[in-house]
Design a protein around this nucleic acid. Structure first.
Length: 474
RNA sequence: GCCGCCAUCGUCUAGGGGACUAGGACGCCGCCCUCUCACGGCGGUAACACGGGUUCGAAUCCCGUUGGCGGUACCA
């Protein structure tokens, strides 16, 4: 019984997501968080959140808040933390002293220039070895012989020869510790079994492993994720559109769509399934199926996936999402939803299959709640000349309608088409431009019915007035 | 420079020596549906970076070249 319990503990998978708060959580970081979370949830393990704030210059509380916000929005939760690396200074000192005493580390005043000189005289591929001094930064002593092997679930074994490795600086002259040291100690103390992070850390891993070895600790399993790039293959940045989680949210993407899309960047279930719920993702995700190739972030595919997820939502669920979105991004939409909830719900029904993001809704259906936008090109094309004439017939037909519902409107408009002997769009388009202001809108019958007789006729009237004024003027 | 990782359609990927006439998804193109835009349906376009091996047989294994990326900080 006791033995079983211990074995169960050993089997428990413990992962960590460890962002450094030097900026907003960008897409690459979000993907790393997601993969850690999926691996943890799949194995029913635990996820530790650690904030790596040992860079005192660039780390700020605001960035910490941004990152936590982004994780909450993505609905990625964690079981422990956030642990702040900066608050573990005492423990770091203790371990540092231990390494100094045991001779695994030494003080050295060697500078970057000294390291360069060393390589000139010893060979470019020889790692720097310093001589112990009384003062200076602390360097880890790398063995001259042998190699360190990184065991990686995604890449297999990668071997690093010790001769090529510089004795890395693990603490500054003032005693404050550096990343490669803090990470090793913190992962050890948190009993992390699997380190899942970006591939940019692969080259750092032997340094961390050497720290662990000097401490006599076992090494965790690694999984270095392929890096994410922009559409042009270059490093992801603002130029590429939405680069941070916050920007994705502002652009009107759904968190479940972002999770689905991000999961597909570097991972696939193995069959041909593209659209997956988060439950399916958890169910099917394993680290050994992660790809080794770097991937490019392609917003077009995310848009498509977002559209798929939007269409799978019920009208009321989509309404809630729109409201959340509006609260931050579109106050006018929020006002409309609050003052005319029934019309708002119907507006969702007639727009749902036409939008790809939450941000697409208001430009498409805002005309139902506020004055139409003025699209000059649309007016010229569909209201001036012969096209505009048919609008007068439409006006009369709608005025006489006993009942202003979708079917009646359809019949009335078809009547106009027959009488004038024109194509359907010659009637529909002028009407659309008159009531919506543009050539793009939900279905014309639904739109007119939902706008209502009074407002529809008022807008048609206004459009016709505008035409005669324009005629007078020229 | 040195150390390391990576290399299949434009993009994300399937592929683990014969099942490959290289599959799927996004995109793009065409057709259908159609009042616009979408949605949906059907069809099409398009790839194993290059050169050597190994093997009866290579997208798959090995070596090299080229290219991309990362590390090489008293950053993370």
């Amino acid at each position: 019984m006791r033995r079983e319990l211990r074995l169960a503990c050993l089997d428990l998978m413990r992962l960590r997501f460890a962002p450094s708060p030097t900026g907003a959580l960008h897409i690459g970081g979000a993907r790393t968080a997601l993969f850690n979370w999926l691996a943890a949830r799949h194995a029913q393990g635990q996820l530790v959140l650690r904030i790596e704030d040992t860079d005192r210059e660039r780390s700020t509380p605001e960035h910490v808040e941004q990152i936590l916000d982004a994780l909450r929005w993505l609905e990625l939760d964690w079981d422990e933390g956030p642990i702040f690396q900066s608050q573990r200074a005492e423990r770091h000192q203790e371990v540092l002293e231990r390494l100094l005493r045991s001779g695994h580390a030494y003080r050295s005043s060697a500078t970057a220039d000294d390291v360069r000189e060393y390589k000139v005289s010893h060979g470019a591929d020889r790692g720097f070895r310093g001589a112990p001094e009384d003062l200076g930064a602390v360097r880890l002593r790398v063995p001259d012989e042998g190699s360190t092997i990184v065991r990686d679930l995604i890449r297999g074994d990668t071997s690093f020869q010790h001769v090529h490795l510089d004795d890395p600086v693990i603490a500054r002259a003032d005693g404050s510790v550096l990343y490669n040291f803090a990470v090793a100690v913190d992962d050890l103390d948190a009993q992390i079994t699997h380190v899942v992070r970006g591939e940019d850390h692969l080259s750092n891993t032997p340094k961390q492993l050497l720290v662990l070895e000097a401490l006599g600790a076992a090494q965790p399993v690694y999984a270095h994720l392929p890096l994410l790039h922009g559409p042009d293959g270059k490093k992801l940045s603002k130029r590429h559109g939405a680069a941070s989680v916050q920007e994705l949210r502002d652009a009107g993407y759904l968190p479940e769509a972002v999770r689905n899309y991000l999961a597909l960047l570097g991972w696939g279930a193995g069959d041909d399934q593209t659209v997956m719920s988060t439950e399916e993702l958890i169910e099917r995700f394993t680290l050994d199926r992660v790809s080794r190739n770097p991937a490019r972030f392609d917003e077009i595919k995310l848009r498509w996936l977002n559209g798929v997820q939007i269409r799978s939502l019920s009208v009321s669920a989509l309404g809630e999402r729109l409201l959340e979105f509006a609260a931050e991004a579109q106050p006018r939409m929020l006002k409309a939803a609050q003052s005319e909830p029934e019309r708002f719900s119907q507006a969702i029904q007639i727009s749902q299959e036409k939008i790809h993001t939450l941000a697409d809704f208001w430009p498409l259906s805002g005309f139902l709640f506020e004055e139409p936008t003025q699209d000059g090109t649309a007016r010229t094309r569909w209201l001036e000349g012969q096209a505009g004439k048919t609008l007068e017939h439409t006006q009369r037909a709608l005025e006489q309608l006993p009942s202003f519902d979708e079917d009646s409107i359809r019949q009335a408009l078809n009547g106009v088409i027959e009488r004038l002997g024109v194509k359907p769009k010659d009637v529909y388009q002028p009407l659309r431009v008159a009531i919506t202001g543009t050539t793009i809108s939900p279905g014309i019958f639904e739109s007119v019915a939902l706008l209502g007789r009074e407002r529809s006729l008022a807008r048609i009237g206004a459009a016709l007035d505008g035409l005669s004024e324009g005629a007078d003027g020229h």
